[in-house]
Amino acid sequence: MAIPSYATRGERIWHYVFLGLCSLIFLFLVGPLLIIIPLSFNAEPYFTFSEAMLSFDPAGYSLRWYEDFFTSSEWLNSIKNSFIIGISSTVLATVLGTIAALGLSSRHMPARGLIMALLISPMIVPLIISAAAMFFFFSKIQLAQTYLGVILAHTALGIPFVVITVTATLSSFDTTLIRAAHSLGASPTRTFFKVVLPLVTPGVVSGALFAFITSFDEVVVVLFIAGPEQRTMPIQMWSGIREQISPTILAVATMLVLLSMLLLATLEMLRRRSERLRGMSPG
């Protein structure tokens, strides 16, 4: 955003004020996430910087909260649960969602708008309402407090993300490519694996990532329909924040921030790859 040559002095000053404001807003966005990283290495059981940390005394820093995390059976068990529930619901949501997206992107789909609205609804309805509704219903059919119940609930919550990303990918899919492959002598199987799949996979994978993170980060529904056995990591954090606030939570939070960085990088890579394959951007 360069300053145009005709800008007046007032505009130049405004330009720098504007950039300054934007920097402050960026600080507001990212600062809180970065501040917990050093805090998680605190040697004291506080949520703030100790004297020793501020003077960069090595004694002020420690890994005790990470040690606490990795030696606590409660935390490790909750991570295991989170992965069991997250992976199962992601697989289910991705398979069902991708198949449905194939149908939805067909020109012949009847009542498309209505069906789409229905499939997206778990994303729109506030979580507390879904949680209350599922709690009532799942208790009736003996699914409350079971792994299956939580997995089905999370599948429902993840489905809109898969449907949205995969239909978006399919709608920009150029079907003449299939004909081109046929005309160049490729068999249908070869066309599917060499042309269709590489183009669609990025959409499916990013839909699956969305579904996974939805489940992995979900608190409200688990809070209502899971029993003590299905305690997931967000629940462990939730009760940690409410009951006995210890910096172990900050250690977990730091690891989760790193996880989301990793995820973001993966998604960005997928996006670039799909753009390159479609020839939308050079290299």
Partner: peptide, 16 residues
Amino acid sequence: LPFWTSLLVRTTTWIA
């Protein structure tokens, strides 16, 4: 980055 970070993490940092 904040968009992708866990809701609980973002709430925790504000408590801190």
